[in-house]
Design a protein around this nucleic acid. Sequence first.
DNA 1: TTAGGGTTAG
Length: 713
Amino acid sequence: MNQVGAALHPQYRSLLTKLQLVTYSKNISSGRSFHGHLLKTGVIPSCVFLCNVLLNFYSKCCFFSDASLFFTDFPCNEDAVPWNVLINAHSQMGLAHHSLSALQLFQQMLHNCTLPNSHTFTGVLSACANLEDHLMARQAHSLVIKFVTATDVFVYTSVLRAYCKLGSLVDGRKVFDEMLDRNSVTWSTMISGYASQGLVNEAFGIFRVLVAGGNEGVNEFVLTGALSAFKSHEFLETGKQIHCLAVKNGLLEIGSVANAVVTMYAKCGNLDDSVQVFEFSNDKNSISWSAMITAYAQSGHGDKSLVLFKEMHYCGMKPNEYTVVGILNACSDIDATNVGMQVHGYLIKSGFESQVYIVTALVDMYAKCGRIIDAQKGFDSLLQPDLVMWTSMIGGFVQNGDNESAISLYCRMQREGIAPNELTLASVLKACSGLSALEQGKQIHAHVVKNGFSLEVPLGSALSTMYAKCGNLDDVNAIFRRMPARDVVSWNAMISGLSQNGLGLEALKLFEEMQLQGVNPDCVTFVNVLTACSHMGLVDKGREYFKSISKNFNIDPTTEHYACMVDILGRAGKLQEAKEFIESAPIDHGLSLWHILLSACRNHRNFELGAYAGERLMELCSLESSGYVLLSSIYSALGRLDDIERVRRMMNIRGVSKEPGCSWIELKNQVHVFVVGDLLHPEIKQARAEIWRLSKLMKDAGHLLEFDSTSEE
DNA sequence: TTAGGGTTAG
């Protein structure tokens, strides 16, 4: 007999309650023995209702093979309920292969001529979202219109959620606007959808409409969704308003809201308020601790993250994978490789180690702590690294100065068919800048244009810096002017690019323009500005800028700024003034300052002062060979052979060895590297012949060629 | 009285 839609006979009510209990407690052994009892008494298969409940029990306990075995002999599969039970249980697992099973079951259901209903579509849409299957989501949406009443808020919220998860916010908004009925889940889905795509104004706009309609729609889900949108300082005031609203409605008492407020303040640069909300929260769970640990790590207080982690342990709170990622971020922040390695050991023991985002955090930690080989081991351990992992590894190589490996990994990523995002491209562009690999950089630029990437800060800045470092100034300007918004880093990159290419005056003009546009200069800006003055020989201007750092901008000049000033004076031949400047500097004299003066003295042939600077440098126990080499050449010019010998002895005692010089050039998409004394390069003979030819031409033109007395070449 | 939609930590 067909029992589709059958109600439960009152005599089975107690059996239903018992089955629901074992499902809730996921007590598999009790459930199995109960299954046996129902079979013995003949309740199964005769009561279809209880068969559905039993199927739900196996599915909810993730015993999918038992569930499908049971389903094979099902008494009535024209009923949608058992199909829905299986489809929903699979899609709720969130994993790709389960979502695929959910969609296959749906196909079989249609093939079996069982009519889907609203419960079917919630599961199907969720599976489409998990699989990022746009086409299937659209098809499911069409079927929803055909099979489900337009007022069904559950199903239409699922359609909305699927579009949001797939990043199709325009489609999502259309569904939202056309819905005949909405509840708080619909609103929070729309708000979180916008927030997850970084569409802050849209998310906040929807939130405001909801609030304007009265406070009854405002719950913890709506608040957390809205709060998650605010990730930079410009939204701090709005974030504060939502915090106040949460307090007013008594919702800050709810742990998830407090957690979202903690993260919001940290991301908007107000760490003190994060700490306060965290400390006053009475509903702390492991998410709260992880949020605060991560907040510290990402605000540059890795040391405090580690302290809090210990406190968490003393409070008996167990860390989860998010806590671990936060701690690894903290280790990267404070260069605490040892703690990072201990966390790695803990991960191996606890079995967290194989999850992609954990490995990504590990690789990132090792790379940022300069252990690139360990980072690479982590990367190689993954069979299927995701985009974030590829990007992290490429960025790791760049941070460690191995630009060749960064570019070659990017090529491998492309061969494996993984599409890069803005951050990947920004990292590869940095590698191109480091290698002055203009052709490769241009290819990336073409990719940016072809794929419609926006020139937001990371990508726009990386692109203009690449063109600047490769000396292609027209392109730098074009990119820079086209960027929708520029932060201080973008301006710095541009000023540095101009100054490095001999356009110091343009660099200084840009510095003035930057201030007119209301962007405050930072330490790096002044390094670039002073470098521009140095290259242009603008001594007075340099002095003026140097004074203004502390006077007008309230920044304490760093050793780098002092070094720039010594360079300005040194290049201009004002060597005595440079010496007095170093000796009166209210900072640790630092090796770099004497080194710069030493080099300037040699260039200006002031050997006496050069010897003085060189001796100061030796007193500071420099381990860099170039200072010793320069001092030797000065003593050689002064004919002080004993001093040359003394410098050589000092080098030996201190274990300083001269690093071979190295240069490279990119020709026809290949970077050629030349090292001093290199006899292995296939074209070394031709290269040397060319150097001699050019040297002779220079000599004939009256240039005096100077060779380093200690050089082997 | 069997099956369904949302949030915070990377």
